[in-house]
Amino acid sequence: MITLTHFLVVSACIFCIGLYAVLAKRNTIMILVGIELMINAAILNFVAFGKYDKLNYAGQVFALFAIVLAAAAVAVGLAIILNVYRSFKTINPKNIHELKD
């Protein structure tokens, strides 16, 4: 029997993996992948909780909107990273530091 707890544990794990990728990876595309994992963990949560919200289906609707918005944000992010690669010839955030105090 798969209960709500299983979903929550899995989504917490995915969120932590995504957070680790964001903090530790030295490649901007991998950071975007990490962000995507974090968003998907939240979407899993929404759908799992939505099972108990029989009347409004707010969880499912939120999940749909979140998927669309995440796709839009990633499209913009990739375009900007392409632009960064053109001017810096690298996408390692460590090496991109023209602006600082």
Partner: peptide
């Protein structure tokens, strides 16, 4: 382009955490 990249990465992470 560096400003845009920093903005998009930081913003997406914050949005994911908020979600």
């Amino acid at each position: 382009s560096e400003a845009a990249m920093k903005y998009v990465l930081f913003g997406s992470v914050c949005a994911a955490v908020m979600l």
